[in-house]
Amino acid sequence: MRLHPDIPPGPLHEKWDNCRFSNTLVNPANRRKYEIIVVGTGLAGASAAASLAELGYNVKSFCIQDSPRRAHSIAAQGGINAAKNYQNDSDSVFRLFYDTIKGGDFRSREANVYRLAQISNAIIDHCAAQGVPFAREYGGTLANRSFGGAQVSRTFYARGQTGQQLLLGAYSSLMRQVAAGKVTIYSRREMMDVVVVDGQARGIIVRNLLTGELERYSANAVVLATGGYGNAFYLSTNAMASNVTAAWRAHKRGAGFANPCFVQIHPTCIPVHGDYQSKLTLMSESLRNDGRVWVPKKTNDL
């Protein structure tokens, strides 16, 4: 297997701009000739499907739930970071890049993290344009709060429902493309296998969860946006459907599976309260930055 991160060459702050400029483009008139499969309808999957359809591609969108609105992105609470520096506290793209690298124990790929910091501001503008009701100051500007141990206030939020509101925004964009005839949604489908032709993913095999039948779908490209796999561990805050099956099936077909230890954990969970508990209950990490701490119920409790 060829193991290469495909990170563009050049100075850190120019890598992805140079990459976008040098990429081969598809003429807008030709995009309607191509079909793309997107598996998953969370924030990544719904955004990818809607954006690809907006560009002119024909998209087939698959989700294991009965509606894209039930994707597990709905469970995110605390907020989403961007380096807009609305609080005038010396935030910048580079500071967001550095904080993210540091938060990843200096193991993250620097070029990818810098790209994340670069596009963070545009993502907030994009979500606001979709109608996401971010919290606002009394003057009408978007509000920020400190989050996740950062020394600046850069987190945009919608009460404790940020993931839900972001998902509804992505869902509205997705359904707009469904109405335009550019996206076809296949709900209650579980991906069973990836169809590989000459080393490239060209389709998927799914099981219809309503009838039990196996179905096959082909496309020019396949995008897997099937979420995390926290339930590979004993207890997790993830939904029970976040169980790594789609990624594992792609891995069995030859896809690389890198850094499986990079799993999000939540240090602010309600403690385990029974032998038959199936998952952990999350409290928003924003509680820490608002000054909340665990205290014993009784004086001598640990």
Results as ranks from 00 to 15, higher is better:
R189I: 09
T211E: 07
A225K: 07
L116D: 08
A71I: 13
V152D: 00
L52H: 01
L52Q: 01
D89E: 11
S187C: 07
I37M: 07
A246E: 14
N121S: 13
L142T: 06
G199S: 05
S120T: 03
H72Q: 15
G160T: 11
M283V: 14
G163W: 00
I204S: 03
G230W: 00
D198G: 00
V293Y: 02
K102F: 08
A128I: 12
G291W: 00
Y57A: 07
V197S: 07
A29C: 08
V272M: 08
L3D: 14
K60H: 12
V223A: 05
D193A: 10
R154A: 11
S286A: 15
K84V: 05
Y86G: 12
G212H: 00
S146G: 15
I265S: 09
L302E: 13
P267A: 05
V38D: 06
S242L: 11
S92L: 08
L25I: 11
L43H: 10
P28N: 04
A50I: 06
T268C: 06
N220K: 02
A135F: 01
D290N: 12
S187L: 01
P260H: 02
F62A: 04
L167K: 03
A46D: 09
I205N: 07
I205L: 13
S173F: 03
A255M: 10
L235R: 04
Y57M: 07
P267L: 06
W294D: 07
Y34H: 10
G10V: 06
D105H: 04
S172K: 11
S90F: 10
A150L: 15
H13V: 15
L43N: 08
A201E: 04
H72C: 13
K60C: 10
F62H: 03
R288F: 09
P271I: 11
H13R: 13
L168N: 10
I205M: 09
T41D: 05
Q164I: 08
T237E: 09
F156M: 08
G160W: 05
G40S: 04
E215L: 10
G45I: 08
G169D: 09
S278D: 14
M191D: 06
Q77K: 05
I265T: 10
M240H: 03
Q87S: 12
T24V: 15
G149E: 05
G131H: 00
D66S: 09
W248A: 15
H72T: 15
A117V: 11
W248C: 13
D275K: 10
D6M: 15
A117S: 10
P68G: 08
H13Y: 07
H13M: 13
D66A: 06
A75E: 14
A258N: 10
Y34S: 09
W248M: 13
N289T: 07
N121H: 01
